[in-house]
Computed example of a mutant assay.
Amino acid sequence: MYDKIVDILCAIKEDQPELRQILSPTTELNNDIGLDSLQMIQFMLKVEEQLNVVIDYDQFDYEHLQSIDTFMTFLKSCQPQELSLYEDVQK
């Protein structure tokens, strides 16, 4: 999971090729990486897509971005994504 998150962050911050070398499990997602609001949305959507989880934004809090480790712990509490995000609408 950690490697996927690092890959996603590096893809979003492609203007910072040195980013991969400075990332660690204790890296703060907001303060150390400096994602702007659009990049944060891209990050969350890519995490959902690539890690096959549904982020519960009612449960999500700023504190979950304290570090990559903290974010991964939050993600482990999220539900796995069903085959279709809109399956319940189709019924």
Results as ranks from 00 to 15, higher is better:
Y2A: 08
V47G: 00
I22V: 15
Q21M: 09
T73Q: 14
E87Q: 13
K4Q: 13
P17F: 03
I8P: 01
L45Q: 13
F71P: 00
T70D: 09
A11T: 12
G34W: 10
E49C: 10
I5K: 03
D36W: 08
P17N: 06
V89H: 08
D61Q: 15
T26V: 10
I8Q: 01
L38M: 13
Y62G: 05
F60A: 08
N52L: 02
M1Q: 12
E48R: 02
E63K: 15
Y62T: 14
Y57S: 04
L38H: 07
Q16F: 00
K76A: 08
S77W: 01
E87G: 04
D3W: 07
L23R: 00
H64Q: 11
H64R: 05
N52G: 05
E18M: 11
P25K: 12
K4M: 14
I33W: 01
R20S: 12
E14T: 02
F60H: 01
S67H: 04
Q66I: 06
E82Y: 05
N31I: 07
Q21P: 03
D61Y: 07
S84W: 09
Q59H: 11
P80H: 03
P25L: 09
Y57E: 06
L85V: 06
M40H: 04
F74C: 11
N30Y: 03
D88C: 07
I55L: 14
S77R: 09
Q16M: 03
Y57I: 06
V53K: 08
L45E: 12
L51Y: 10
Q42A: 13
L19P: 02
P80K: 03
T27G: 12
T27P: 11
L23T: 01
V89L: 15
E48I: 02
F74G: 09
L45I: 12
S37N: 11
D88Q: 14
Q90C: 03
N30V: 04
D58S: 06
T27N: 12
L85P: 02
E48M: 03
F74D: 09
I41F: 14
D58M: 04
Q79D: 10
S37T: 11
V54H: 05
E49T: 13
I33P: 00
I22F: 09
Q21R: 12
C78Q: 11
I12S: 04
K13F: 05
L9I: 14
L9A: 07
D3M: 10
T26R: 12
Y2V: 08
K4F: 09
D7R: 00
S24T: 15
T26E: 14
Q16P: 00
Q81K: 15
V89G: 03
L23V: 03
D7S: 07
Y86F: 02
T27C: 11
M40W: 01
L29H: 01
E48C: 02
D32N: 14
Q39C: 06
N31T: 12
P17S: 07
E49R: 14
F60T: 02
L23H: 00
V54G: 04
I22C: 10
T27R: 10
V54P: 01
I41K: 09
